[in-house]
Amino acid sequence: MPTSIITTDDLRDFKLELLDDINQLLAQHATVKLKKYLKSSEVMDMLQVSPGTLQNLRVNGTLPYTKVGGILYYDAEEIQSVMTANRVQNKIH
C-alpha cells in the first residue's frame, strides 16, 4: 500500500477549501427565509417552553397570536420583537 506525504501546503489548501465550503453553507442558510407564521408547537420548540407556559404568555398578553379555525398562529417577527424588547442587559462592574 503506497503512502503519500502530506505537506503544510496541502493542509493550507485543504483549510482554504473547507472554509470556502463552510462560507457557502452559511450563505445558503442565511438566505432561507423563516416562515411568517408559526404554530404553537413550533413556538414551543423555538422558545423551549411548555404548553402551559405558552398559554400563560398568550393570556397575559406577552405573545400576540391569531386564531383561525381553532389553530393558533404566531407571527415570527412579533416573537422576535418581544424577545428583543424583554432582553435584560447584565451590568458588569
Results as ranks from 00 to 15, higher is better:
L57F: 15
P64C: 11
L16W: 09
V88N: 05
K15F: 11
R87A: 13
M1Y: 03
A27E: 15
S4G: 04
T3S: 12
V59E: 14
I6D: 00
L57A: 12
D9M: 11
D13C: 03
S50V: 03
V32N: 04
D10K: 06
S4T: 13
N86F: 00
V43W: 04
N23H: 12
H93F: 11
K35Y: 05
D21R: 11
K33I: 14
D13V: 05
K67T: 07
V59S: 10
N23C: 06
E17W: 07
T84D: 11
M83I: 13
P51H: 06
N56C: 09
L57C: 09
Q89K: 14
K39C: 08
L16G: 04
Q89C: 07
S40D: 04
V49C: 01
D20I: 06
V82L: 04
D21Y: 01
F14Y: 05
Q80L: 11
K35F: 02
P51G: 05
G69Q: 00
A76V: 04
V43Y: 03
I22R: 03
D21Q: 05
V43M: 08
Y37W: 14
T66D: 12
T8E: 09
R87E: 09
H29P: 00
L54I: 04
L63V: 08
D20E: 10
Q28T: 13
K67I: 07
D21M: 00
N23R: 14
M46V: 02
N86Y: 03
L72V: 12
D13T: 06
L54H: 02
E78D: 13
T66F: 01
L18P: 03
Q24E: 13
N60M: 13
R58I: 06
H93R: 10
V32W: 02
D9P: 00
D20V: 00
N60S: 15
D21N: 04
S81H: 09
L57K: 15
T7H: 02
S40P: 03
K39W: 01
L34H: 12
M44Q: 11
L63H: 03
Q89G: 07
Y74M: 09
D10H: 10
K33M: 13
L26S: 08
M1W: 04
M1Q: 07
K67G: 00
E78L: 12
V49N: 00
G52S: 11
P2M: 10
Y65W: 05
R58D: 04
D45I: 05
L26I: 10
Y74D: 09
L47K: 02
V68G: 03
I71P: 02
R12W: 08
R58Y: 02
S50D: 01
L72A: 08
P64Q: 15
D13F: 08
I5H: 14
T66P: 00
T62E: 08
I79F: 01
T53E: 14
V43Q: 05
L34C: 10
S81M: 11
M44T: 01
S50G: 07
S81C: 07
L19C: 06
V88T: 11
N86R: 13
Q89W: 05
H29V: 11
G69N: 07
V88L: 10
N56L: 14
M83P: 01
E17G: 08
D20L: 00
